[in-house]
Write a protein that binds this DNA or RNA. Structure first.
Lengths: 143, 143
DNA sequence: TATTGTTATACTCTATAACTATA
DNA sequence: TATAGTTATAGAGTATAACAATA
């Protein structure tokens, strides 16, 4: 069954190329003196609006005590706000400050800058190919 | 200049999709009780044949003392061999044992299994698109 | 009694500095 | 004197266990 073999080969090729580009993108990350987890936590808080620390921990697949430490750092830097939960005295609600949003925006802008330069070096046909491939890659990731 | 804007948009789309798939692939990683660095080190040694610890450290972008510890663990597990350098008494040459090669092969097989299933769910046209996109992604990563 | 968030403590991974042996 | 590899030590980051406050 040749199709199966070819799919396995494609899986191998895709895995290598995607992981390699991801490593490169990670490496080209701008440095705001924040760790990857700290940046990712900001993104999660930005995306899921006012959210409890427990929920943030679940999203980031990290234990609550670890998230406590991350949130303390982000709070000290003035990147997040904590407010009391309206109906449950045990919980808190965390959200981004204006500075937090600004930092996240700048982080994204700089991350994409390196990749944009690489893409500009491609031919128009190659860029078009990637434009059509990206949604498929995204779909696989979300499967 | 609309082309520039479109390239920036593509950069954004590509970054998100690639990073997301990479995270997913990382998460679907089999567990042999070895860390990511340890597995990556095995792959580097496999790829670059008999190689000195210093060179392995450079490849993995890690400092020599850190690599010393990684190599000690791999040696204790019987995954690598160390032999004296033929002409320089200070250096060593590291290579994979049969067990090391086997573990690496099994690791790859399991990692690709999840992705292969996802790819098999696509249409033939979509797979063909990815087949043509993969080398371009690889080229960007190596740029 | 169960749950949220925190504190105390330990483990893993990586780094820098200092040391040994060879070139 | 310079370089390869190691040992000693320290700093992030995350984990589990135990605790306080609230449901």
């Amino acid at each position: 069954m040749p199709t199966m073999t070819k799919t396995a080969e494609l899986a191998s090729t895709m895995r290598v190329s995607v992981m390699r580009l991801a490593r490169r993108l990670r490496h080209e990350r701008p440095d705001f003196g924040l760790s990857l987890t700290q940046i990712a936590t900001l993104a999660t808080i930005d995306r899921h609006g006012p959210i409890t620390p427990r929920e943030v921990a679940d999203h980031e697949r990290v234990q609550p005590p670890s998230m406590t430490r991350v949130l303390c750092v982000l709070e000290e830097r003035g990147l997040i706000n904590r407010t009391a939960h309206p109906s449950d005295g045990r919980q808190q609600l965390v959200s981004l400050t204006r500075e937090g949003k600004e930092l996240l925006r700048e982080d994204r802008r700089r991350r994409e800058a390196w990749l944009a330069v690489r893409l500009a070096e491609l031919t128009a046909e190659e860029r078009d190919l990637l434009r059509r491939a990206a949604p498929i890659i995204e779909r696989i990731a979300n499967a």
